[in-house]
Nucleic acid binder design. Structure first.
Lengths: 193, 193
DNA sequence: GTCTATAACGTGATAGAC
DNA sequence: GTCTATCACGTTATAGAC
């Protein structure tokens, strides 16, 4: 992943992002990061205090990117259901899984409050924005009054995260697609009711 | 975890089951297993060919146990919705996550077809049984005709798996509860329609 | 800012004694 | 069947030269 026109610290963060996604925190060694970034031991420990410090920088950047991409669909045109549908069905590297959700399974991430915070915040903001979209849809009469926006927002995020899990287990994106179609079908039926 | 009245190979499997749940495959070392089980290196390599072989035995047992516990709710009394509700709301170690779903995030598990197979099969059977329960509910008129049992079954499994992810990220079971309430609410609205 | 050297310890496995 | 010894290599970091 060596990229010539990029600062060493920048390259280290980008390599860490990629390796955290592929192998998780426990499975990613400082040595692997250094090799991937084309940097020596000394460089890494000059720019970062250690593995957790570097991981924190990488996680924050990935989290910001994820929320920005989600906002593209949430703030887009269409009904609430159309925007949520666009979000769930947009092109994704389903078999690679969610770069943030993956970290929630890592015991070393969950055990460290500094590292867990950006993961928690990411899901909290996603859920919050989805709840706003759903509330809007209910006010516009696109969805029934009985729908609980907060609970349903959590459900949508959970279907996304769980869909990733099923797809990786199966080695196929089909189960992700099914899970998404299922929840969209339930939401559509609710709208019609 | 040393348990006196148990065969060494039995203790090794039980320790592996617990450590795989807590730390995942990559994060679990043979040495840690041996110490937990109170067995030496030689014992482990006498009974098992290595780490993957021992992990396979542990995963199979956990998978069987999971499916058996799920069947208790699926085969129980009540409507389809009541049985699915009982399944999702039964007592669970939510913050510890799903011992099988956790493995789907592990690159070394996914990369090894022998180790991935039991994980995939577990979800496939869960999804299959849920689809049967939903089909039954539709035939009995408990659920609307527009509901797709296969897709919805995937959705329910995904909500469960995703709920675990959200709960671990938040360090609280609340988001799991919300995600489950959300999908049950959508299913209930569908039933009423 | 970057590099190499070194260190103390862990990993996954084999060999062979008991 | 169980144990300890040994091995080659990886991990996470520190020290200090360039």
């Amino acid at each position: 992943m060596y990229t010539p026109g990029m600062e060493t610290s920048e390259r280290l963060i980008e390599s860490t992002r990629r390796l955290l996604w592929e192998r998780g925190y426990t499975g990613t060694s400082p040595k692997a990061i250094q090799q991937d970034a084309g940097a020596g031991q000394g460089s890494m420990y000059h720019h970062f205090r250690g593995k957790p410090d570097l991981a924190l920088a990488a996680i924050r950047r990935t989290a910001d990117e994820m929320l920005a991409k989600a906002e593209e669909q949430f703030a887009g045109p269409g009904t609430a259901l159309e925007r949520i549908s666009a979000y769930l069905l947009r092109e994704r590297d389903v078999l690679k899984g969610c770069p943030i959700g993956r970290l929630a399974q890592d015991p070393d991430i969950v055990a460290d409050p500094e590292l867990r915070r950006p993961v928690d915040e990411t899901f909290d903001r996603l859920r919050g924005r989805l709840a706003e979209v759903l509330t809007e849809g209910r006010e516009r009469g696109e969805l029934g009054d009985t729908l609980d926006p907060e609970d349903t927002a959590s459900t949508v995020v959970a279907v996304l995260q769980g869909g990733y899990v099923l797809a990786r287990a199966a080695g196929s994106t089909e189960s992700y697609r099914q899970a998404v179609q299922g929840v969209l079908g339930l939401l559509a039926a609710h709208a019609a009711a």
